[in-house]
Design a protein around this nucleic acid. Structure first.
Lengths: 185, 185
DNA sequence: AATGTCATGTAACTAGTTACATGATTTA
DNA sequence: TAAATCATGTAACTAGTTACATGACATT
């Protein structure tokens, strides 16, 4: 049971509910807002091969008339399960420190894969993790800002504002989900 | 002339104007707001060795009474030059897509290494890169949001808000610099 | 004397990067 | 038919990860 890389999970998430070729996946990384991932063939094709070796995805030759020859991939039950259990991992403060990118990636897939109830649960954990982390950052700022170079202080201030904004975003997103769940339960 | 990794530049930046040991640098990554970097010895010591091999830093044995034995590093003129030229690289929209983390890292060191005039110049480029990228993101949102899963749409919305916030931050930071430069020119 | 933390390093492994190779299918 | 682009892959290299090794010094 090998670990799955971030790119691996991104691929699993994109393959949930649809079959795509390696080229399709590359195009998604080049042309959409998921540009933080590499679109290089040297990253994607080996990643797909690893997922296939672990039986998390399966590739079938697409001989459809409209498509050029090439394999399209779909999730196996094991792969879908791996995706679900990744999405259900608890949100830790550590995840915040290392970078919110992974958390937002998980969130983006979440509603589609796990449904709104789990998604709200994730947002609550997300908000709580920020609520735990933000005071630590602010304390650090108040202690050290005086002796930091100006641009370092400004950069830290920007980071603090980012977290504050994400907290507000999470709270308003929770409300959006709750409103909708009251309307159609 | 080998390329320098992100961690390498972070180390060069931290060693600008001060001498630190490998352990000192590790502690900075564990305990301060630079937690996005790994504090593992297996990352830092090889990175220091690479920088030393490229003659960008120099390690000298610290036999000061208060310190345990170990080497402390300082920038060589070549290393200082490499740091400066990294900090002076133009800000591209591509940098935005791949992630603002590197840009903020550069900014944090900038005032101390290059002075306020260059820092304002960087902030202007930063603001302009966002001004170029944000409409693209918003266009993508307006076209695709209807057919995206709700949480994916919310995640994209959060990303857009983040960029908008950073733009405001950059503008107010520019003003802060300009105010100060009017006061003491 | 024993234990714990300081401090530096190494080894095996993994995943990503750049750059190239290959062939099929459109388009000019 | 020549050029461009679709589509998949591979090879060499690099840097980072986890885990372990080592010894000096401090604390009890």
């Amino acid at each position: 049971m090998n670990p799955i890389s971030q790119l691996g999970y991104a691929l699993l998430g994109l393959l949930h509910g649809q079959t795509l070729s390696g080229y399709d996946l590359r195009k998604i990384f080049t042309s959409t807002a998921m540009g933080s991932f590499s679109d290089s063939p040297g990253a994607i094709y080996p990643a797909l091969a690893r997922l296939e070796n672990q039986a998390l995805i399966e590739g079938t030759v697409a001989d459809s008339a409209s498509m050029r020859k090439g394999r399209v991939f779909h999730l196996t039950p094991t792969g879908a399960e791996a995706l679900r259990s990744w999405l259900q991992e608890p949100v830790t403060t550590d995840d915040m420190v290392r970078g919110v990118g992974v958390l937002m990636l998980r969130f983006a897939f979440m509603d589609h894969v796990l449904g709104p109830a789990h998604t709200v649960c994730f947002l609550r954990q997300f908000a709580e993790a920020i609520t735990a982390y933000l005071p630590r950052l602010e304390l650090y700022f108040s202690i050290n800002s005086a002796k930091m170079p100006r641009s370092a202080r400004l950069a830290l201030g920007c980071g603090i504002q980012e977290y504050a904004m994400r907290l507000k975003w999470a709270e308003s997103s929770i409300q959006e989900y709750e409103r909708e769940m009251r309307e159609k339960p």
